[in-house]
Design a binder for these strands. Structure first.
Lengths: 164, 164
DNA sequence: CTCAATTCGGATAATTTGTATCCGCTTAAT
DNA sequence: ATTAAGCGGATACAAATTATCCGAATTGAG
């Protein structure tokens, strides 16, 4: 049960985009550079976010990535699902159907053990679904302070993105 | 975010032990055979459960594994933690400390993104902590029906364990 | 009290998964 | 037409997971 580190990268990237003016975009190199991450690999994750409908991409000169929806409508779960997939963490192998007691009882009913883990995971997801990128950006921005926010805006301008 | 399949094996193994008479034990070969799993690998998971204090082991002839506590006092989280470790799923790499905005704001404060994932995981764990092996064994036993339970008791006797 | 059978336990190998990079292709702005 | 940029696939590389084996420790029989 390990969260892939790409999730952390992806959330940070979305938070950066949410800190720009609505509709503004940045390319993969810029988003990677903001946290000093390898650009090629970051690009892979950004592509996954596009496939999941979290980001929208523009190709060609002056292209880049922008949020596909408003920051308030993108949850942390949307991002994790984009990177890791939305399938269940606990994959029941139904090992109960093997062995001396297999075949007794209605095997159509779900495995109680799997149910417990699936329900636990539902609660995990519910919490992430309740947190939006907008909230994250607000909190991070508040911690940065006026000088930090100014520095962010300067950086965005240099990279060709309109600041908020 | 994938739950290791060893967790499923371990929970099933504990559920089997909880279906025996209190204090009864089974060896690794028997616990593996019940679900037709590779014995050598199952043994490794059982060892992890011993290290975590969930099971107790006895060596030598007529030895084996038994529950270290009453089934009602063993939670699904205890078992998952034994197999996968109790560390956080989301390991914050603190990538926010790199880049143009690093150093602004009190970096002693925890990362908001990490906090969100840690809290989500806390809810996951809370649910698993609330479910005991005793509950699981009760539910599985109920589904088996009288004939299935009888078959289970016969199997346990053949393997040298006292049935409930 | 010795010996042999049994069983756990840690070290070791094989496989899969995740991490990271590169290159050709398509697309869009200048 | 040229340049900038994302997209997808192919490919290494690193790490974790899966699986197996052999030695150490314990028990019980003779």
């Amino acid at each position: 049960m390990k969260t892939l580190e790409g999730v952390e990268w992806a959330v940070h990237a979305c938070a950066v985009l949410a800190g720009l003016a609505p509709g503004a975009s940045l390319n993969a190199a810029a988003l990677a550079d903001f946290h000093r991450l390898p650009a090629a690999y970051m690009a892979k994750h950004l592509q996954a976010l596009v496939r999941a409908g979290v980001l929208a991409a523009s190709r060609g000169g002056r292209g880049g990535y922008r949020l596909a929806r408003r920051p308030a409508d993108i949850s942390l779960w949307d991002i994790q699902a984009a990177i890791e997939g939305s399938g269940p963490s606990f994959r029941c192998q139904d090992i109960r159907r093997e062995g001396p007691c297999a075949g007794f009882g209605p095997s159509e009913l779900p495995c109680d053990i799997a149910c417990a883990f699936v329900e636990a995971e539902a609660r995990y997801r519910a919490h992430l679904k309740a947190i939006s990128v907008a909230q994250i950006t607000r909190q991070v921005g508040a911690k940065l302070g006026p000088e930090g926010r100014s520095r962010f805006n300067d950086w965005a301008s240099e990279r060709g993105a309109k600041p908020a």
